[in-house]
Design a protein around this nucleic acid. Structure first.
Length: 526
RNA sequence: GGCCCGUUCGUCUAUCGGUUAGGACAUCUGGUUUUCAACCAGGAAAGAGGGGUUCAACUCCCCUACGGGCUGCCA
């Protein structure tokens, strides 16, 4: 039995448009790693590199669903030594904007989805697309249709009224050239009228469409411009795309597109139509579910690695593996593991995964990511001192944060300078009794050797002498050191802050009446 | 209307005819603890409904319900 990868068709340089020539690999053969290890007695030469693409239309930001589609294509290509191409489907001139293209590029850059070669503008290929339409026309596989849009609309209305199929059947399909009028026309393909078309889909299985469901779709508009359905096929072919991984809203379109592939005698790519992402209520993900744009997640401070992990796992599985690295994702990702039903977006799980990724990311890399996050979300940058401080304290910060804002909140103790102004909750821990206790503790700490064991010993001894539990002391210490009630461990804070700064903060908390005054006034106001 | 696709715990999913239907997130309980978190232990929680096929069905087939998609000179 042959592994199914043997179906990967070859990149035919002869058919390729010059504009994509640089994509064509010169006979270099690659295969999945398991294959190269000789698990199967197949000659490696029969395998050609995988080529995938992401083809968004630039009509808005990068939708999170689109980002996942891009991710799947990226993972599939990268895991197999293949290429991942990016093509902007901008044939709809009215709706396409350069800003949207920028937003898409930016989103992909954030997610780390690097593509091979230049960004292709589909519109730039209009001449080539039109040439294919005329080739089909010359070959008698397409025809000029002179029906006006009004006529077509009337046809559809009538069909609908009779409860019949609204598929338009042009009266011009078989009209001889001499009988054709001198009026505007579109070029339509001659779709097969009987039999069936089978879409061999790696996700959906074999989907059989009766050919009488296929209409003679328009290839070239009356103004001579190509239509999307033609442009995708020509571009995918010219770019040597071997695997088309896209949303399942295109599943039916695949049958239509196959008529073009067949008419041109081109190899049909491997199809993989993936289910769309839904919101928590099971409806199509939209604005009312919260963020739908990739960059919104960046601004909210989710790490890209966690985002990739979550999006990969959403609708795809590899046994019971939930948390994985990029390297593992590339190695494990396959089309067979993609589910057939739409998945709902779950922020809780996203956060959980992001927390795990933050925890296992290298400290210095995290500081870089945080810097980028601050920039992307329009917040002031970290000073050198802050950046160093956060790096020093990272070991006790990254274990407990799910997002960057979360981490930054926990890092307040190291980001702030004296005087430490406690927030409301922390202020409650700095009443006069607590300040009295702190003022007794501070001199003791100035004599202690500044390491974890000595600190723990000193504080425990102090509590014992005072007859209180450590818990009672922790609140005031947090308030004094960080001005917060929620912080990392007090020992970690003291170690990161070092002795001098720690003692200064404790001293300030015991003597600073300004802070106390605001506290008192707040409390009495309640 | 026609055609196509989907339906396992609240959510993401495992299962590829024989399992006490497993894991993760969330949730609940207990433990530990220095608050939150983290961590440990445990609990509750699922095959849309109905027919078949089979010794045996979550798994294969059909019907229904519900959800989604396509049906453009949009992509």
């Amino acid at each position: 039995m042959l592994p199914k990868h043997s179906r990967y068709h070859t990149v035919d340089a002869a058919h390729a448009c010059p504009r994509f020539a640089h994509y064509i690999d010169s006979g270099k053969t690659l295969g999945p790693s398991w294959l190269l290890k000789g698990k199967f007695p197949m000659p490696v030469e029969t395998f050609k590199p995988v080529v995938t693409r992401f083809a968004p239309s630039p009509t808005g930001y990068l939708h999170i669903g689109g980002a996942r589609t891009a991710l799947f294509n990226w993972l599939f290509a990268r895991g197999r030594g293949g290429k991942f191409l990016l093509r902007i489907e901008d044939t709809d001139r009215a709706r396409s904007t350069p800003e949207a293209t920028q937003a898409i590029l930016q989103g992909m850059a954030w997610l780390g989805l690097d593509h091979d070669g230049d960004v292709i503008s589909q519109f730039d290929g209009a001449e080539r697309h039109a040439a294919v339409a005329h080739e089909l026309l010359a070959a008698g596989k397409a025809y000029k249709c002179y029906s006006t849009q009004d006529e077509i609309q009337a046809f559809r209305d009538a069909a609908k009224a009779e409860g019949k199929s609204t598929l338009f059947h042009s009266p011009w399909r078989d009209v001889a050239a001499k009988d054709q009028p001198d009026t505007p026309f579109v070029i339509r393909i001659k779709a097969p009228q009987d039999g069936t078309t089978i879409i061999k889909d790696e996700v959906q299985g074999d989907v059989t469409i009766s050919n009488d469901q296929l209409d003679d779709m328009v290839l070239l508009r009356s103004d001579g411009t190509p239509v999307y359905m033609l442009a995708v096929v020509v571009d995918d072919h010219d770019m040597g795309v071997t695997h088309v991984i896209r949303g399942d809203d295109h599943l039916n379109n695949a049958a239509r597109q196959m008529t073009i592939y067949n008419a041109m005698g081109w190899d049909v790519p491997v199809w993989a139509h993936i289910p769309l992402i839904f919101g928590g209520d099971g409806k199509k993900l939209s604005k009312r579910h919260g963020a739908t744009g990739a960059e919104e997640y960046q601004v909210m401070g989710y790490p890209a690695s966690g985002m990739r992990n979550y999006l990969t796992r959403l609708g795809w599985s590899h046994g019971n593996d939930e948390f994985f690295t990029d390297a593992q994702a590339k190695e494990w990702f396959d089309l067979k593991g993609i589910g057939k039903s739409p998945a709902r977006f779950d922020f809780k799980k996203l956060e959980s995964l992001c927390g795990q990724h933050i925890a296992q990311t290298d400290d210095a890399a995290l500081v870089k990511e945080i810097t980028a996050f601050l920039d992307a979300s329009g917040q002031p940058a970290l000073s050198d001192a802050q950046s160093n401080g956060i790096l020093n304290g990272m070991y006790c910060l990254k274990e407990r944060a799910k997002t960057f804002p979360d981490l930054l909140e926990k890092a307040i103790f190291v980001l702030s300078k004296r005087p430490i102004v406690p927030n409301e909750k922390a202020a409650k821990n700095l009443d006069s009794v607590s300040r009295g206790i702190l003022s007794e503790l501070t001199p003791l700490l100035s004599a202690v050797s500044w390491d974890r064991d000595s600190l723990e010993a000193a504080l425990n001894a102090f509590c014992k002498a005072k007859g209180t539990k450590f818990g009672k002391l922790a609140g005031p210490l947090r308030a004094a050191l960080a001005g917060r009630a929620v912080t990392p461990s007090v020992f970690d804070m003291m170690l990161v802050l070092e002795q001098e700064e720690s003692l200064a903060r404790l001293t300030q908390a015991t003597v600073d009446t300004a802070a106390t005054k605001t506290t008192v006034s707040r409390l009495t106001a309640l």
